[in-house]
Design a protein around this nucleic acid. Structure first.
Lengths: 205, 205
DNA sequence: AACAAATTAAGGGTTTACCCCTATTTCAAG
DNA sequence: CTTGAAATAGGGGTAAACCCTTAATTTGTT
């Protein structure tokens, strides 16, 4: 198999160049860019396997970039780099489909390990965070597929009528599903549903 | 322009009195209180620009106080003081709309600098954290204080009737505010409002 | 003092959300 | 082959949300 094709997105020139020279022996660094916009633009022209993506960037930060990449290049695996290891950050990155998270004070060995983990279609997160990932998966509520679909649509702010037309079912059916949803989640209205859907990772913002 | 109007909330009498005497030459210390409850009560009667808020207080701590202030007095700028500089603390404080964070072993010069930074509608955080703050990007919408309060309550899932009763105003007034909110945000219903409120950092989950 | 913005409130209207209920079909698991 | 969950749909109702208009009062700023 050929060498892994990498891209680097980081606003700090020194760090980016250093990273590039460290990696160039073992991987093929296809390109490096100082921000998320450039990254997305270059991904149109170049094929890469893994992106090393800085979380803290001016303008469009790592989160925004991740979010856009989910739709524009869902096959590209993102390994996030950050000065901080705040749980919040990491959870958010996971929600946005990051494949790994590495603090910037990590060693070269850790970085290489992380890259290989991610490459094998897997994930790489800090040991201390291993237990977070399953938490994200198992929801506190067992919603059916239809219910989940309706939750997503309802949380986008469209009416039951529009949901019904979009799914090709009756308004009454939508209302029934929603009743089940509310009962399962023990809530009473859409505002609360949006909050829960976000917490459960059903809806990502 | 007149002198900055300050308030101090700290449970340690000595520290509070010392702070007051240090500040009284350059700022107008409107009042000082030993806890968060007293702070909120006094803010009903007095107008202040900046509150120096201790994080570690018995009963209602700085975080809780911050959270309540977001709804009751969102215009009051809070400069947090703490014995500890844990990143967790600072990030949480930022999420709760604190305008600055200062360890209690800071110098008078640093405090004055922090107060002036905060006063100029800005923020003051440790150098290491400067670049985190932009993540809390300033709101894309100019909501008034009342509007912000109503957004928070509406997003918690309570009805307009309940909001009205909680704020001691008419349902019609609440509806009017909501109309203005929807117009400003160019949205049509509560589901979208919850999403925007979270994105804008008005609501924290 | 004059003006703009914010806050307050109400009247009167339509639409949607939300909550009961019953009932059929489908489909997978025991 | 039966049992139960899921998905479908409707009837009928109340409460709430949402939208429009007008208007007085308060508040802050030139």
């Amino acid at each position: 198999m050929g060498r892994l094709r990498m891209a680097i997105a980081d606003d700090h020139d020194l760090f980016r160049q250093g990273l590039k020279s460290v990696l160039k022996d073992k991987f093929e660094v296809v390109f490096d860019v100082p921000n998320g916009l450039e990254l997305i633009r270059k991904l149109e022209d170049y094929n890469v396997d893994i992106v090393l993506l800085d979380l803290e960037m001016p303008g469009m930060d790592g989160f925004e970039t991740l979010n856009l990449l989910r739709t524009s290049h869902p096959d590209v695996k993102c390994l996030m780099l950050s000065y901080f290891s705040e749980t919040d950050f990491i959870v958010r990155a996971i929600q946005l489909n990051a494949r790994g998270f590495l603090p910037k004070n990590a060693t070269i060995e850790q970085l290489e390990k992380a890259i290989h983990c991610v490459s094998d279609n897997g994930y790489y997160f800090d040991e201390a965070l291993q237990y977070i990932v399953p938490i994200q998966k198992k929801s506190n509520y067992q919603f059916t597929n239809k219910e989940t679909a309706i939750i997503r649509l309802a949380c986008s702010g469209i009416t039951n009528k529009e949901i019904a037309s979009k799914l090709g079912i009756s308004i009454k059916t939508v209302e029934n599903h929603r009743s089940s949803i509310f009962e399962k989640a023990q809530i009473k209205n859409i505002a609360q549903l949006v909050l829960i859907a976000i917490q459960e990772g059903i809806v990502v913002i």
